[in-house]
Design a protein around this nucleic acid. Structure first.
Lengths: 134, 134
DNA sequence: ATAAATAAGATCATTTTTATCCTATATATA
DNA sequence: TATATATAGGATAAAAATGATCTTATTTAT
């Protein structure tokens, strides 16, 4: 079980935009080259990040990407979930039928709590704090 | 991102064996039927659980599975990781090269901590406590 | 108008996951 | 000891998810 490649690319992309600063336009080609991301694939990922309101895509000549939030407000959780969807939205571990008969299923509870803890950790991490990474 | 089907099956299987009790032999066919698991596939999963020392497989006529630990000592984490491997053993989110140049990479740290928290939650959940699930 | 840059749908390739088939092996018991 | 029963384990197939690219369309600066 691991973070998907798309998730990694998204983080790299947002890290690069964070270093450039909120509102600063950066060409897609530059992000792709500098952060080692296939450019077309980055295009797809960018669409998801833009839909989530995290960045803006500017078309046309001199187009590119632009961070829409302050790195201080941008969390690892927001970026990752924008791309790979809600983390651990799992079908119940028990049989589906027996499960929706019991909303108080213990397995389900444990799983949910574990997920919440995980998300909390990622939510605490802002890109401002991640940028120091070198 | 979700738990794999194999992981779900493993939990269901161990839950059934827990209800039978440690050391009690249960036929594979019975587990498969009762817990809604493809029997051959269960065979594969059982091998992994057996290798991890969580259960024993008995061959031959009157063969089957047998729980090797007390439900009080069996954790959700042990079962899940026996089947799907270490959780979140992710390649670094940053470029691999830049990453192994910096063992103090912030992204890596956050990710590692989030994973640890997640595993803690699953480790606290014993099958004895999960059995109440109905 | 033209050139440069991204959008978006289609498509392809790869990998992972899920599942099954088949032959071998182990074991209870007749 | 022979037979029937049950699981082991390797090979393989089918399906799904993921990763990546191709092509055409659209947008925008100059």
């Amino acid at each position: 079980m691991r973070l998907s490649r798309a998730g990694e690319y998204a983080v790299r992309c947002m890290l690069y935009l964070s270093m450039a600063g909120k509102g600063v336009l950066v060409r897609r080609k530059t992000v792709a080259r500098e952060m080692d991301i296939p450019e077309q694939f980055l295009g797809k990922i960018a669409q998801q990040l833009a839909r989530a309101g995290l960045m803006e895509i500017v078309q046309g000549a001199k187009g590119g990407f632009r961070l829409m939030v302050f790195p201080e407000e941008l969390t690892l959780l927001a970026v990752v979930e924008a791309v790979i969807g809600e983390i651990f939205l799992n079908d119940c571990v028990l049989r589906p039928e027996s499960c929706h008969r019991s909303p108080d299923c213990k397995v389900h509870q444990v799983w949910t709590e574990a997920r919440d803890r995980f998300r909390e950790s990622l939510q605490k991490a802002t890109f401002a704090s991640l940028m120091d990474c070198r």
